[in-house]
Every structure is written in C-alpha cells, then in structure tokens.
Amino acid sequence: MEFYPKVYLYRRIVKAKLFIDDNYANAIELDHIADEAFFSKFHFIRLFKKTYGKTPHQYLTYVRIENSKLFLKKQMPVSEVCYSVGFDSVSSFTGLFKRMVGQTPSAYLQEYIGKQLEIKTIPLKHVPNCFAEMNGWTQKSNFQEV
C-alpha cells in the first residue's frame, strides 16, 4: 500500500527530518532544508510540526542535545561536545542542556560514570531478580570476561 494520500509530502518531510539527523553538527539553515524539500518555509514548519510534534528548529535542538549525551558518555570535554554537536557557545549549550535534561552536562557525565562503575562492581543491581535467576546470574558469579 504505497499509494496513501499525499505520500510525496510524507517522503519530503521524512527526508528533511533525516537530513537534520545526519547534519545536526553543521550550521543548518532551515530555509535551505525547506527549499530542498520544495516547501515554502511556513508550509514546511507547519507540516514538520504536525508530523513530529516539534518545529524543525526545536527538533534540531533536540537532536543536538541527544547526541551531546552520547559524546559526554565517551567522556569528551563539555566544550568539545558543545562544538561537536553544532552549538557555538558553551554557556548557551550548558543552559539549554540543563533546561532540557534537568541537569548540567557535567552532572550528567558524573551520573553516567557512577552508573557504569556500579554496573562493573554490582551488575545484579541492574537486573531484576527473575531475569538473573533464569540466567543463573547469582551474587557469587564471576562477571568478569575471561
């Protein structure tokens, strides 16, 4: 069933979304994406928001923040993360991150490091007992890879 109404519109909106997913680290001009998708800017923003619940700009910010979490988990310095995901000001990145995630990038990284340490030392804390028992994972298991 490839012939639902306005399939071409959906494909253009999806293409624009995937463009943002792939190019979030660059300076993206939304006018340019709208042109590429053959939409007027107003029409593009309206359709994008109807489809994804966010304006293209809000979605771009969301993708940048989500990717910044991945970079932080690789223990990249905050300033480097900021520029790697397409922001050009560390203070505005930090403020935006805190507003969207609920904690600063540094606090997010510390929490992640703490969880990773806990996974290494007490892995069973993260596995419900029914699953652990089913797999024979017990407190006395040696979880170190050989």
Binding site: I119, P123, N135, Q144, E145
Partner: peptide, 28 residues
C-alpha cells in the same frame, strides 16, 4: 538503558523507546 557484561558470553542489554524511559525492553 543498560548494557552490562554478565560474564563470558552473557550480556544484560535493555533499551527503551525514547519517550518511555521507565520501560526497559530486555533484548535476551
């Protein structure tokens, strides 16, 4: 959500849908 080695050949891997962070789907 969690990706934890559980010994040789064993791994506890859970994911969640982006807007449902309190549901862990264990990929067993």
């Amino acid at each position: 959500h969690t990706d934890a080695p559980m010994g040789p050949g064993a791994r506890w891997l859970t994911v969640n849908p982006p807007e449902q962070t309190d549901l862990e789907i264990a990929l067993m």
